[in-house]
Amino acid sequence: MTSESARELVAVFGGSFNPPHIAHVMTVLVVLSTHPVDRVVVIPTFAHPFAKQLAPYEDRVRMIELAMAGIARVEISRIEETLGGESRTLRTLEHLQSEHPSWNLRLVMGADVLAETPKWYAFDRIAKIAPPIVLGRAGFESSAAPTPILPAISSTDIRAKVGQGRWSDLEPIVPRTVLEYIREHALYEHGH
């Protein structure tokens, strides 16, 4: 039996990261510096449950690795690829829980994502397994939302700007190494 003191508090941060941007990096840094977590596990979505078009999985994994490089206590997990099929938060958390019984899980999400949870499958069970850490995001106002600390940066807007060749607009909001990767691999040339 694992004693409570030997348990690790692990924050789980999932997303399509299509592409990752500085608000994703800031999210990880905020969680690590304001919550007593031992580590953050970043999980790129394998196949989006709402059938969104995504850049190839390998490219998104590589971009999030580049974005998070150099941040201590962060690991990128390919668990959703291992599980296969459509990504479901509940299935991912249940798998993490069974694979790592010594982990106490918390689910990291922006207030804008929290507003979408009624559409999620079994969010009440998700919240029981991994109580959410909710971070406020600029441009999203709600009585349930905490004070905005994350900038209003959208991957959708980033993809559109790449498609328009507006690289200078992207320099302040996308990690340099990620922008280089996008250019080198000709991702999002058509804005999606």
Rank of each mutant, 00 (worst) to 15 (best):
T27W: 07
T156H: 04
A122C: 01
P49A: 00
N104W: 14
H185A: 14
I79W: 11
V178L: 03
G70W: 12
A186C: 12
T34C: 02
G136D: 09
D124Q: 10
V25K: 06
R60H: 10
V74E: 02
P44N: 07
P101I: 15
V30P: 05
R39K: 09
L135I: 08
W103C: 05
L150E: 15
A144T: 08
S87M: 13
P101V: 15
S98G: 05
M1K: 12
E184A: 15
A130I: 02
V31Y: 03
I79M: 04
V134N: 10
G70E: 09
L107E: 03
A51R: 15
R62P: 05
P56L: 10
A145N: 10
R7P: 02
I129C: 03
M26R: 14
G110V: 06
H21R: 01
E99I: 11
R60F: 15
H95T: 13
S154V: 05
F17V: 03
I64F: 06
V25C: 06
D157G: 11
T27S: 05
E4W: 07
S98T: 14
P118L: 06
I149P: 14
G70Q: 11
N18T: 00
Y57S: 02
V37M: 12
S33T: 09
T82E: 07
H35Q: 09
T27Y: 11
L90G: 10
V31Q: 07
R7Y: 02
P118C: 07
E80W: 10
E116Y: 11
P172C: 00
T177W: 12
L54N: 14
P56G: 08
D38L: 04
L150A: 13
D59G: 02
A152T: 07
A6D: 13
A23C: 03
V174L: 02
V108H: 01
L170C: 02
I158V: 09
W167F: 08
E86Y: 11
V74Y: 04
S168K: 03
Q164I: 12
P19W: 03
E75H: 12
A51D: 04
I79S: 12
D169M: 05
S16R: 04
P20G: 09
R78S: 08
E75V: 11
P148S: 12
A51C: 09
S5N: 12
V25I: 08
E75N: 14
F46R: 00
I76N: 06
F17D: 00
P20Y: 01
A152V: 01
A47E: 15
P36D: 14
V12F: 05
F123A: 05
A152G: 01
N104A: 08
Q97Y: 12
F46S: 00
I64Y: 09
A11F: 00
M63P: 14
L179R: 01
E180L: 12
A72Y: 08
A23F: 12
T82W: 09
G191V: 13
K161G: 00
V10T: 01
S168M: 14
V41P: 04
R7T: 06
G14V: 00
D124M: 05
Q164W: 14
V134L: 12
Y188E: 09
V37C: 02
N104F: 07
V174G: 01
R159P: 10
G136K: 00
I22Y: 08
P36Y: 01
